[in-house]
Amino acid sequence: MTDQTHSTKPSPEAVAARAVLLGRARWGLPEIAFWAIAFGAFFFMPTKLSLLSEIAILGLLALSIDLVLGYAGIVTLGQGAFFGIGAYAAGLAAKYGAGAAPWSDPLLGLLIAGAAAGLIGLLTSFLVLRGSDLTRLMVTLGVALIVDELVNQMKWLTGGSDGLQGVLPAPVLGVWDFDLYGKTAYLYALGVLFVLFVIARAIVKSPFGLSLQAIKGNPLRARAIGMPVNGRLVAIYTLASVYAGIAGGLAAQTTQFASPDYVAFHRSADALLMLVFGGAGHLYGGLIGSIIFRAMQDYLGNITPQYWQFWLGLTLVALVLFVRGGILGLFAKMRDRVLRKGEPA
C-alpha cells in the first residue's frame, strides 16, 4: 500500500510525511529520564518494591485504556474484565502447571493471559462498534459485569468469592524466584511494562495510530476518505484487551493469587480515573496517573486509614476543575506558555 508509492519514486509529499512520522517517533529527553528513574527506583526505593510493582501493573492497565480512549475515543468502563480474565488465565496456568515444567513459566503465563483476554476482546469488540459513546460505555460495563458474575459462580474453576489460591509461578526465565521483598516482581513487571510500552508507542506513532486519531476526531470523515473504521477499531480494542490481560497476568503472578476483586467494577473505574488524572492520549498519562494515585493513597492511608478516600476525592475534584487534560495536560500548557514567551511578538 504505502510501499507501492515510494518503491517507484517517492513524491515530495511522501518524503515530508515520512519525516513527520520519524520526528514523532524520536525519543525525547524527558522520556528517557522517566524510564531511567523507573528502573533506578529499584535501587533507591528498596523498601517500596511491592507498591512499585503494583503501580507498574496498574500503569499497564491504564495504558491499555489510553489506547482505546486516548487514541481511538472509545469510552470504556470494562477494561477490568480483561484484566481479570488475564489474571485468572495466568493464575490457573501457574496453579495447575506447577511441576509440569513449561506451563507454570511466568512468561508463557503472560502469553496465555494475553491470548485469553485478546480472544474475549476480539469477540466483544463487535458489540462495541455499535452505537455511540454512551451505548459503548454501557456495553463495556455490561461485559465486565458478566465476567464478574461468571468468576463468582464458576467456583469449581475460580474458587468463587474465596479467590484462587495456590498460584505458584516458576522462577522468571528459570532463574529469578518471586521473593518476599518484591525485587523479582518489580523488575519483571517493569520490564514487561517497558517492552509493551515501546510496542504501543511504535503503534500510536505509526500511520495506523494516526488513522485512529483521525477516527477519534471525526469517524464520518475518516470513513469518507476511505479508512476502514470498523476494522481499525476492532484491531485497537483487541490489542488493548491483550494489554489489559497481560497486566492481569502480572498481577496474579506477582501476588500469587487471583480474586474476584481483580474483575470488579472498581478496578476499571480506578484505572480510568488514573488515566484521566494523568491525562489521556499521551501514553504516559496512565503511568503518571497510577504513580500519583497510588503514592497518594499510600501516603494518605498511612496518616488516616479511615478517611484517605475523602482527601483523594477532593484532589481529584480540584484537578478536574482547574487543570483540564490531567497532569500531562498541565505540563503541555506550561510548555506552550514558555515557548510562546520566547517567540518575538
Binding site: 523498601t47 517500596k48 501476588t255 500469587q256 493469587f257 480474586s259 481483580y262 492511608g301 486509614p305
Partner: peptide
C-alpha cells in the same frame, strides 16, 4: 493499615 477489603492489598501491606 487499610486494605479496603482487597486481598492483593492485604498481602502487600503485610509484606511492607
Amino acid at each position: 493499615k487499610d486494605d479496603t477489603g482487597a486481598a492483593d492489598q492485604s498481602k502487600r501491606l503485610a509484606t511492607e
